[in-house]
C-alpha cells in the first residue's frame, strides 16, 4: 500500500507467541497493523465531530487513548511480546525490579490521568467562577514527600542487583570497579567486537585459570580456541568475558541474560555471566538465543548477529570445544590469529 516492491521475505512471519492458558487477545497485531491506525483515526474524527456539539467528548478522546495504552501493555505482557525468556537468576531479579517499577508507575499513571480526565468532566464551578486559589502548603508538602519517599525506595532497592551485575565487591578491583579478580570463574574468554562480527577466544579449560585475566586477554596463546559469533558455555557455569574492540564502540547485548555492555576502544572490560539455564531442549534441539549489537557501529550494525548456546552440562560443552579445536588445528594457524583483514567490507573506501 505504501511502497511497491517485490521482496516478500517478511511475509509469513510468526505472529505473537501464544502463552498457554492466556485469555484470547482482543486483536492480533499481525492482522491489525494495517487497518487499526485508520480505525483509530476514524474514532478521533468522530470525537472531534461530537465535540463540536458536546465539549465533554474531549474526555472521551483522552480516556480512549489512555485506555488503549493500558490495554496494549496488558496485551503485550500476556501475548509474549514482553521481556524475552529469562536465562539466569540475575535476569529474574532484573525482571522483578522492572515489574516493581511498572507497578509503582502504573499507580501514578492511573492517578494523574484519572484526575486529568475528571477535570475535563467536572461540573462548572458554582456561579461560573472558580475560586481564586493560589496554592496550598499542605498539599505541596504531600506531593513532594510521597513521590520522594517512593523514589528513594526505588533508588535503594536496586543497589544490590546493580552491584551483582557489575560484579562489585568491596576490596580489590580488577579494573576500576569491575569484576574483582578473586571472584572465581569456571570459564574464561575474550569477546572482541569489530566491524561487523564478534570474535570469541576461549581459554582452554584443561589449563589452569590464569591469575591475571587482563594479562591473558592481551596475550593470545596457541592453545586458545577460537569461534566467531558463537558464545558457548554450560548450564551453571560462571563465565568471565573480557570485552574488547579493535575499531569502534560496539555493545554486546544478550537479551535473555539482560546483559549489555559497551566495548570501548582501548579498554578491556571484564564481565561475569551466570548461566543458570540451558537453551538445549531434552530432545537436543536448540532454542535460539541471539547476540545483538546495541551501539551503532556503522552501516552493518544491524548485522552483528550471533548466537548463544548454553549446553546442558560441562561435558556437552567440552565436546563442542574439542570439535572446534580439531577443526582449528586443521586450518593454518595464521587464519585463526587476530586480527585478520576483511577486504570485502572495505570495497567502497
Amino acid at each position: 500500500m505504501i511502497t511497491e516492491g517485490t521482496s516478500t521475505k517478511v511475509s509469513g512471519l510468526p505472529g505473537t507467541v501464544e502463552i498457554a492458558g492466556a485469555p484470547p487477545y482482543l486483536f492480533e497485531w499481525s492482522e491489525s497493523a494495517h487497518w487499526l491506525p485508520l480505525a483509530i483515526t476514524g474514532l478521533a474524527l468522530i470525537a472531534w465531530i461530537v465535540s463540536l456539539r458536546f465539549k465533554r467528548a474531549w474526555a472521551a478522546l483522552f480516556g480512549f487513548t489512555l485506555a488503549l495504552m493500558a490495554l496494549w501493555t496488558l496485551q503485550s505482557a500476556r501475548s509474549g511480546l514482553w521481556l524475552p525468556e529469562s536465562a539466569s537468576l540475575i535476569a529474574d531479579e532484573v525482571d522483578g525490579l522492572f515489574h516493581l517499577v511498572m507497578a509503582l508507575t502504573s499507580i501514578f499513571y492511573l492517578l494523574t490521568q484519572g484526575v486529568l480526565i475528571w477535570t475535563l468532566l467536572q461540573p462548572a464551578p458554582p456561579g461560573g467562577r472558580a475560586a481564586r486559589v493560589h496554592g496550598n502548603h499542605l498539599l505541596e508538602l504531600v506531593w513532594f514527600t510521597v513521590p520522594t519517599g517512593l523514589l528513594v525506595y526505588i533508588a535503594l532497592v536496586q543497589l544490590p542487583t546493580w552491584a551483582k551485575m557489575k560484579g562489585q565487591v568491596p576490596g580489590a578491583y580488577l579494573a576500576a570497579g569491575y569484576q574483582p579478580a578473586s571472584d572465581p570463574a569456571d570459564l574464561l574468554l575474550t569477546v572482541t567486537g569489530r566491524q561487523w562480527e564478534w570474535r570469541m577466544r576461549y581459554h582452554s579449560p584443561d589449563q589452569p585459570m590464569p591469575v591475571n585475566p587482563l594479562f591473558w586477554a592481551a596475550t593470545p596463546a596457541a592453545e586458545d580456541i577460537h569461534a566467531v559469533n558463537e558464545l558457548h558455555a554450560w548450564q551453571g557455569a560462571k563465565v568471565r568475558m573480557m570485552l574488547r574492540t579493535t575499531d569502534v564502540i560496539h555493545s554486546f547485548f544478550l537479551p535473555q541474560f539482560r546483559f549489555k555492555q559497551d566495548m570501548l576502544p582501548g579498554k578491556t572490560i571484564p564481565a561475569l555471566l551466570h548461566t543458570d539455564r540451558s537453551n538445549i531442549e531434552a530432545d537436543g534441539t536448540e532454542r535460539v538465543w541471539e547476540i545483538a549489537c546495541a551501539e551503532l557501529c556503522g552501516g552493518n550494525h544491524y548485522r552483528m548477529r550471533g548466537k548463544v548456546v548454553i549446553h546442558r552440562d560441562k561435558k556437552e560443552f567440552m565436546d563442542w570445544l574439542n570439535r572446534q579445536k580439531a577443526s582449528q588445528s586443521e586450518r593454518k594457524e595464521s587464519a585463526a590469529a587476530l586480527p585478520t583483514p576483511k577486504p570485502e567490507a572495505r570495497e567502497n573506501q
Binding site: L97, F98, I154
Partner: peptide
C-alpha cells in the same frame, strides 16, 4: 524515565 534510571533495568 524512571525505568531507565533503575540501572539494572537500564542494562536491558
Amino acid at each position: 524515565g524512571i525505568f531507565m534510571a533503575v540501572t539494572p533495568v537500564d542494562v536491558h
